[in-house]
Design a protein around this nucleic acid. Sequence first.
DNA 1: CGTGTGATTGACGCCTGTCAACGTCTGTGG
DNA 2: CCACAGACGTTGACAGGCGTCAATCACACG
Lengths: 234, 234
Amino acid sequence: MKSIHNIPSCDSCSLRSVTIFKNLSPEEHEMLNSDITHDFFKKGSIIYHEGSRITGCYCVSKGIVKIYKTGIDGKEQIITFAKKGNIIGFRSVLTGELACTTAKVIEDASLCFIPGYSLIKLVKQNGNFSMDLMQLACKELGQSNAYITDIAQKTVRERLAEILLQLKDNFGLDEDNFLLITLTREELANIVGTATESIIRLLSEFKNDNLIELHGRKIKLININAIKKMANIY
Amino acid sequence: MKSIHNIPSCDSCSLRSVTIFKNLSPEEHEMLNSDITHDFFKKGSIIYHEGSRITGCYCVSKGIVKIYKTGIDGKEQIITFAKKGNIIGFRSVLTGELACTTAKVIEDASLCFIPGYSLIKLVKQNGNFSMDLMQLACKELGQSNAYITDIAQKTVRERLAEILLQLKDNFGLDEDNFLLITLTREELANIVGTATESIIRLLSEFKNDNLIELHGRKIKLININAIKKMANIY
DNA sequence: CGTGTGATTGACGCCTGTCAACGTCTGTGG
DNA sequence: CCACAGACGTTGACAGGCGTCAATCACACG
């Protein structure tokens, strides 16, 4: 890691051992370094659009990106969020299909772009990397399948509680127990799969039950155990 | 393919070019052939249980297997079906996690068991196979994400129509336009994510609208275009 | 200060889940 | 051959969760 020099902005994503690239050889790292480019995206920018062809994937080194699909009447369904260290868009690169999601920046982000041919080359030549990436895909698959079950069987209230906990696990809390990610009510609705108004009503219900506190978009988790109970987590 | 000899029961799954194993070398095929075992499962048998450790994956050479998760109050959510040529259980093998679904036979089935170490060995040593398997995982991921959107945004009626079409595409129709797969009302409910009674009511509604005909568990698709319209497919 | 986006609240009603009762069919055992 | 049990299918009644529509408020920004 000390040998890496002049691309400091990538230290946090592709080159650090925390990420998917930990099993690359030094030569492969070097190749990757020469292939990748680095971009900055302001909040609100679209990284790629559902239905467009993707020429490579992205590794997030800073910021937050929401990944969503567009459904009926243009209503978006948020599938997941990507933060520092996460890799996005590899699904479409590997299958050669058009992007089946849109990636939009919700907190100013720095991303590394990894050309598709580089990724595919690595998959084919490095069995360990291949395994790592496969595990990543499989884990995402497991999560998606779990969410299908939730969304099919749980009430909106239970799902909202569960999502709050997931956001906590994913992005953490500050010293005052505020969620470190801030979302609009509409975005919360688009994760849970419900109407904005329902989210608003349920949030204020949670507040009245002393599960959370609301300060604008910042949500403070007060009674996490009660939230877990509400989420019906076994 | 002509060189393959004495394991006829596997011709239809692991050894044929239709499946995921098309990019194996002759030596790898041979290795696989010596590692796999073959089993017959009667309708109703469980191949593996959610939460159990899996020592390998299975390739379906005959029959139909339903893959489901168990949610609230033991209600099952069907994630997918596997038929001839499909491979199941590889997700857990690759991630080393416990099985996150249960696999249950709904039509008498023949399966090849592929030990986990064989699969992992192939992934690591054969880049093309690795790519193929990765693509499979990624496609499943895309499907699951699409279904999340559907289930979050569409009505039960729309989802039922969509599922009927998917079953048609997946398992086909006989000469009289009957779906070749027969499911109980409860199973249909567990795909769509609703109550059995709702499925019954909607099916008879579809019948009254001349979209389908019902003969016990056999469902005949009469007006496929109207079903598509009902499913809200763009 | 006007404009626009997001948050909130209330009214209303339909979709859909739940409960209960009953019908149908199949297989089993007496 | 009949009775019975059990699984599955069907129908009706009912309530409530949640989506939709509309109006209003809050706040930021040019």
